[in-house]
Amino acid sequence: MASPTTPYSWASYLRWMLATLVACVALVGAVNVFIDPLGIFGSPRIAGLSATKPYLDHHRELTRWQAARRLCPSAGIFGNSRAEIGFDPEHPAFAAQGLSAFNHSIPGSAVSMALRQFGWLQAAGCTPKVALIGVEFYDFLGSTKAAPLPPIDTPPAIDGKVLAETVFAITGLRDSAKTAALQRARYAATLTERGFNPLDNYIAEVDNSGHYILFRQRADENARNWGRKAKAIQPAEGQSIDQQALDALLAGIQTSGGKARLVIYPYHAEIRLMQARLGLADLFNDWKRMVVAIAARHPGVEVWDFSGIGPETLEAIPAPGDRKTHLQYFWEAGHFKRALGDKVIARVMGASDADGRFGIQLTPDNIENVIAADRKQLDALLTTPSPLLTEVDDVVGKRR
């Protein structure tokens, strides 16, 4: 008959269990910090193990901030997912001017996020000399109430909560495993060390489903989202947060001696036609006037418009079922590829090889002429039967 367990053996067993638990947690933490999926600890990037970081949907602000703080770039790209996916900070136009660029863009963010990020950079002594800022019409759409601009908060920090979620948790271990696995992946969702999302995983999406599905899904989503918003871009009295944030951001850049270049994104012609069918075309033009007026209050600020109708934005949408065609410039109507983003950067940065036909600099003196010419081109598309117009009418008709 076995002898009963003594108090001493129980105590020894519990100490052993506690030590094992602590060792396991410490090991998990060490692995997660070493692999550093989010790149927030600055751990060495090891080829074949952790050099390529996954694109993760959590702690995005912290990820961008920690990388920017370490690099202290002299040029910054600010905006939403269009800028994150389309504007490569390693474009040679930056290096040609002796600049080191970083892409601070965060999906779904408005200009108030750019203002916060700029404030953090200033406080850290990393004020960019050049800021390329993507401005988004749909951030301003629906603005009917004036509200005070909130103060700039402190930058995100690696605190206890972050450590618990990214170091000492299964989530962190899962992210580390994903990091190791994607080193061998052909088309992985990744984020570069300079904040650029090349969206390589969409190559596989196109191979599997075709571009048409991506365009249609985005068009249906846009029709729903735009239909929910009021047809207004500013309050009846006062200013919206976005107006105030843009004004404050440009003032801060000017005060610091930097140069600001506002970019109106290149939208595929499908979006421009949907704007017209949904009664937003005139509002879009009013918004351009607003952006130019705000910029004019800050001498030296440039406004560049790439939303016009042209060969690039008229790139034909492949037919349903076509899984072989890969477009040159667009993933879907709202998100352009690096190839088109490169043309934007070259033009805005004054590169010698820039395409002078693509994009136009807006000023108070030429804004009305530009709008008139653009309206003429848009009207021509609206009155000429085409597969694109048929597709737009189908999307809008079903929404209505």
Results as ranks from 00 to 15, higher is better:
S50F: 05
Y265V: 07
V31F: 04
Q66R: 14
A281G: 02
Q244C: 06
T20I: 10
S100D: 15
A185P: 00
P89Y: 02
E90S: 14
A319H: 00
G279C: 06
I271H: 02
L21G: 15
A296F: 03
M113D: 14
L115C: 06
I367K: 08
R218F: 11
V303W: 02
Y265W: 02
I253D: 08
N225L: 13
A95Y: 00
P385F: 10
R186F: 05
R347H: 09
W65P: 14
R218S: 15
H326V: 01
L280P: 01
H91M: 02
G257L: 12
P37D: 06
K229T: 02
G48P: 08
F306Y: 09
H326M: 08
A123H: 05
T363K: 07
A67H: 12
D207H: 08
Q244N: 07
G134W: 02
L280D: 03
G42Y: 06
P198A: 10
P7W: 00
L14Y: 06
R15M: 15
K324C: 02
Q243W: 01
L249E: 10
G350F: 04
A351E: 14
I345C: 09
L381Y: 04
W304I: 09
G238N: 09
A101G: 14
I317S: 04
L182E: 07
A269N: 10
L327Q: 13
A346Q: 08
I264M: 11
H335W: 03
L38G: 09
A281N: 06
I106A: 12
S105M: 07
T63K: 06
P37W: 00
F102Q: 10
L173P: 03
N222W: 03
E368H: 05
Y212M: 04
L314V: 00
R400I: 05
S386K: 02
A373S: 13
I106R: 01
A380D: 15
D355Q: 02
A372T: 11
A219V: 03
L340G: 01
H91G: 12
A245M: 06
W287L: 06
H104D: 13
P155N: 09
R228V: 11
I158P: 03
S9N: 08
P299I: 00
H59A: 15
A124C: 07
R116G: 11
F34G: 08
